[in-house]
Design a protein around this nucleic acid. Structure first.
Lengths: 216, 216
DNA sequence: CAATTCTTTGACCAATCGGACAAGCCTTTA
DNA sequence: TAAAGGCTTGTCCGATTGGTCAAAGAATTG
């Protein structure tokens, strides 16, 4: 009996074991790929992080690329789900505020995922290219249309919807991807709860403060 | 005689040869490290990019880490020089506008350098930590003081100076680091001159549009 | 021109990489 | 409980890595 295959002393079925092991490997892989990049994130390092032998990683994922592909897909799907909050019918500023809040929450909750994605794009998206050309492309076009609709309806000051989206993505993800730099400039300490709240307020004010119609 | 050691058929001195070879290797290393990361950017790949044997790279740079260190230091110094444009005495909006313009120009001119830096920070700054703790730290503190001074003097709306700096860094560097994603969303084509100009206008409007006192 | 120094390069090395594979163990199923 | 299938793991492999070294070539110096 493997000690990993129980929770609170209760033995797990093979189904549960499989799910648990895959999840553990995926979490370790996300961290290791974030910290060392794709090439530097070796299977043995991922295995050590997960506390299992290297061979066991290969057993659950056909090869390194397949494992990496799942890690990248995970964070993309999480972001996509969060992005669907920008609904056409809501108040523009409220919708964009929610989106920024959610993105910053994710930057805090899943920094490794954000870093893996950043790494992937920096290196030319050898794996994620399909996501970019299909899902991200259509999603972006949709949201730009929504924002342009708001502008035409007079609910939002005229701005470049595309560059607004890019600014939201870059600023929010910056707090994950460059978290180490930010922590170093914060006396080496990661942000506290209060500092994350200040960040939300500041980012929203900077990016959205100028978009409200009839502003002061 | 080595064909590399001449410019326009004129033979070069050893001094010139040395400088030329080092520069060529550094440029190749910046590109390769950007595209493959530190671990993935092998010496042989850098050598191939530079068109010389691997041993020759090691001859000019003691080891891979030393070469990488110079690449990282180069881009940091370029950014620092650009940042000194934010002078205390200039008009706040004009100074910040110039800074954003310069950063976007650099994102376009040196995208590989920006990507190497991003990679380095994402991975916890194993090499650049000293830059962060000394030069970046004091530079950031200085500029925050300048911006806060502007606010106290009533020249700028009250904002978080720190988060404003982070927003400028993240948005401008995003156009380099995520250039592949942006190009994919731009029908697979890199930005034209006109699109870069639009970017400058849009970024400045988004980040600075709300900071002017007595605004409309 | 001779001696010295600098540059170039291929051969070589230990370490690590991703991955294959087989043997043994455990769980499920009939 | 017996057979079958899934899980775990150590061992092994060719390829690639960063780096050493010696020998030969070219430039500089006296």
């Amino acid at each position: 009996m493997n000690e990993n295959h129980q929770i609170g002393g209760k033995r797990l079925s093979q189904r549960e074991t499989r799910a648990q092991n895959r999840a553990r490997i995926l979490a370790s892989a996300e961290k290791v790929f974030a910290e060392y990049g794709y090439t530097g994130g070796s299977i043995s390092r991922i295995a050590a992080e997960a506390g299992i032998p290297k061979s066991n990683v290969i057993y659950y994922f056909a090869n390194k690329e397949a494992l990496y592909h799942e890690v990248v897909g995970d964070i993309f799907n999480i972001w996509r789900a969060a992005a669907d909050q920008i609904s056409d019918r809501s108040d523009p500023i409220a919708a964009l505020s929610d989106y920024i809040d959610t993105k910053l929450d994710l930057a805090r909750a899943r920094p490794y995922g954000s870093k893996v994605w950043a790494n992937e794009i920096i290196q030319g998206a050898p794996i994620a290219q399909d996501y970019l050309e299909t899902e991200l492309r259509s999603w972006t076009d949709d949201r730009i249309a929504v924002i342009d609709g708001w502008i035409e309806a007079g609910k939002l000051r005229p701005v470049s919807a595309r560059h607004l989206l890019y600014a939201i993505w870059s600023t929010t993800q910056h707090y994950a991807d460059f978290g180490h730099q930010i922590a170093t400039l914060n006396d080496g300490k990661p942000f506290t709860d209060a500092q994350w709240e200040e960040t939300k307020v500041a980012v929203k004010e900077l990016l959205l403060g100028n978009l409200e119609m009839g502003g002061e």
